[in-house]
Deep mutational scan, measured.
Amino acid sequence: WKITIYDQENFQGKRMEFTSSCPNVSERSFDNVRSLKVESGAWIGYEHTSFCGQQFILERGEYPRWDAWSGSNAYHIERLMSFRPICSA
């Protein structure tokens, strides 16, 4: 599993790669995730830290803005603060 997060939209700004769970992006000096690329595996992104709040399934691909992973939710969530890989047995 591999995911790359960015602190600006369209894959700009600070970037960081992960191959395992991140319970709080702010502990990695990110205020928020504004864009991301899922390089391999599937991940679950969460609205809040500690894997809480609205969940987003993140499959392999590029997500240049928050609405790319938020989709058409009843209330739009511009925040992604934690994530972890989906492990299959």
Rank of each mutant, 00 (worst) to 15 (best):
F18E: 03
L36F: 11
F18W: 04
L80F: 08
N24H: 02
Q12F: 08
D7R: 03
I77L: 13
F83I: 05
G61Y: 02
E47I: 04
R79M: 06
D67S: 13
G41Y: 01
G71C: 10
Q55K: 11
S72T: 14
V25K: 03
E9L: 04
W1C: 15
M16F: 06
R65M: 06
E17Y: 06
D67K: 08
P23W: 07
V25P: 04
E59W: 06
W1M: 14
E62G: 06
N73P: 11
E9M: 05
S72N: 15
S40L: 13
I77R: 13
Y6H: 04
G53R: 01
F51Y: 15
W43H: 01
W66A: 14
C87G: 12
G13P: 01
C52F: 10
A42C: 14
N73C: 15
D67V: 12
T49Y: 10
M81C: 08
H48M: 13
S21W: 04
S82M: 02
S88L: 07
Y75N: 15
F56I: 14
K14N: 14
I3C: 05
A74H: 14
S40A: 15
F30Y: 06
S82A: 04
R65L: 05
W1S: 14
Q54C: 06
A89W: 08
I5C: 08
E17R: 07
Q12P: 00
S70P: 06
S21N: 06
P85L: 03
C22P: 01
E17D: 11
I77W: 07
I3V: 04
G53E: 02
R60W: 05
T19S: 09
S26E: 09
S88C: 08
S29K: 10
W66I: 09
S21T: 05
E47D: 09
G61A: 03
G45Y: 03
I5Q: 00
I77T: 09
N10W: 07
L80M: 09
D31C: 09
S88H: 13
I86C: 13
K2L: 11
D7I: 02
M81P: 04
R34Y: 03
G41T: 02
H76C: 11
F56N: 05
N24S: 09
F18Q: 03
M81Q: 13
S72Y: 09
G41A: 02
E62I: 10
N32K: 10
R28V: 10
F30E: 02
S72K: 14
P23D: 11
P85W: 03
E27D: 11
E47M: 03
L58V: 04
R84C: 02
A42Q: 15
N32A: 11
E17F: 07
I3T: 06
E9Q: 09
R15T: 10
S21A: 11
A68P: 04
V38A: 03
E17M: 09
T49M: 08
S26T: 11
R79Y: 13
T49N: 11
R34H: 04
F11S: 02
Q12C: 10
W66Y: 12
S26M: 10
E39Y: 10
Y6T: 00
M81N: 06
V38D: 04
G71R: 14
Y6D: 01
A89M: 11
Q12A: 10
L80H: 01
S72L: 10
E27F: 05
Y63Q: 05
R65I: 05
E27H: 08
E17N: 06
S88N: 13
Q55R: 11
P64S: 09
